[in-house]
């Protein structure tokens, strides 16, 4: 039963994130904004459309979206979403989590380069470099959790049974929390690092990589992106909210609410600030790494 619930949450929740963010941006700007379920409609529409594929591309172009989505879903399997522990968990799966996302990123970048267009190359270069710089922040953040709970498996770290990390270590984890939020924004190309809503190819990072994907390919990519966003939000939620004291259904309900709150937060940030200059982005990434490193040092002492 828990497995079915986990899969349901993992597959259905992500597009809602997109809808919430869109709606919050609109409300802040004083508009009504698109309906909450807009992303679901988009996915269904894209699934039926026909795909346009450039003659210069090879099978890698098609593999990009598939690998992107699959790695996100498999990573999702490793994350404990509700009360029950994650279906797929083994010691050291936090490393697997990070590297799975790396695999997804590898193939989307390769697919972008496969089209042979200057813009997609630019996007691939930025994406790959920024993710390389943010990787230490993610892993050091995870290490902070490992230190506080003692096990290297995500299920144990964030699972229902474990005491909420915040209560155990307090302040240092706040630092790690902020750093993980920055990681979330960077990994999913949200505003401070990249502006998903722009249509200027030269300024995009993630969006320009998927410029040439159309129809079902684009659908898969967007769906994969939202799943990744949900995963990071779930980590943040498990990190901040204490769990496991209430009945099982409360935990299952608490996660979607938390995730929606995080989505609202992202929407608020997106509408309040603009994208930073490209040259400054590496500096912000490195500062995110330092944040989690300091958090870790405080813990390790």
């Amino acid at each position: 039963m828990n497995l079915v619930l986990h899969l349901l949450l993992l597959t259905l929740l992500p597009p809602l994130m997109g809808g919430v963010i869109g709606r919050v941006r609109a409300l802040v700007a004083g508009r009504r904004g698109p309906p909450l379920l807009q992303p679901y409609y988009e996915l269904v529409k894209l699934a039926q459309k026909s795909a346009v594929i450039s003659p210069t591309t090879s099978w890698v172009f098609l593999a990009g979206p598939v690998v992107g989505l699959t790695t996100a879903l498999v990573a999702g399997l490793m994350l404990p979403l509700g009360a029950a522990s994650a279906p797929l968990s083994f010691t050291g799966d936090l490393v697997a989590f990070a590297y799975l996302l790396g695999l997804g990123r590898f193939f989307t970048s390769a697919a972008a380069l496969d089209t042979g267009s200057a813009f997609e190359g630019m996007g691939a270069a930025r994406e790959a470099t920024y993710s390389a710089l943010i990787e230490p922040a993610l892993l050091l953040g995870m290490m902070a959790l490992v230190l506080s709970t003692g096990s290297t498996s995500l299920a144990a770290l964030l699972g229902g049974g474990a005491p909420s990390p915040l209560s155990v270590a307090g302040a240092p984890l706040l630092l790690v929390g902020v750093s993980l939020f920055l990681v979330l924004l960077a990994e999913n190309s949200r505003v401070p690092f990249d502006d998903p809503a722009t249509h200027l190819e030269l300024t995009m990072v993630h969006e320009v990589m998927v410029l040439d994907h159309s129809g079902p390919l684009l659908g898969l990519i967007q769906y994969g992106a939202w799943v990744k966003l949900t995963l990071f939000a779930a980590i943040l939620v498990r990190l901040l909210l204490p769990l496991g004291w209430g009945p099982a259904w409360a935990d299952w309900a608490l996660l979607p609410v938390g995730v929606v709150v995080v989505a609202a937060g992202i929407g608020a940030i997106e509408s309040s600030m603009a994208r930073t200059r490209l040259l400054l982005v590496p500096r912000m990434l490195v500062s995110a790494c330092l944040l989690s490193a300091f958090g870790l040092l405080l813990l390790a002492r």
Partner: peptide, 9 residues
């Protein structure tokens, strides 16, 4: 959905 060939954007 079918597949059509088109020049890279």
């Amino acid at each position: 959905g079918g597949v059509r060939s088109g020049e890279t954007w």
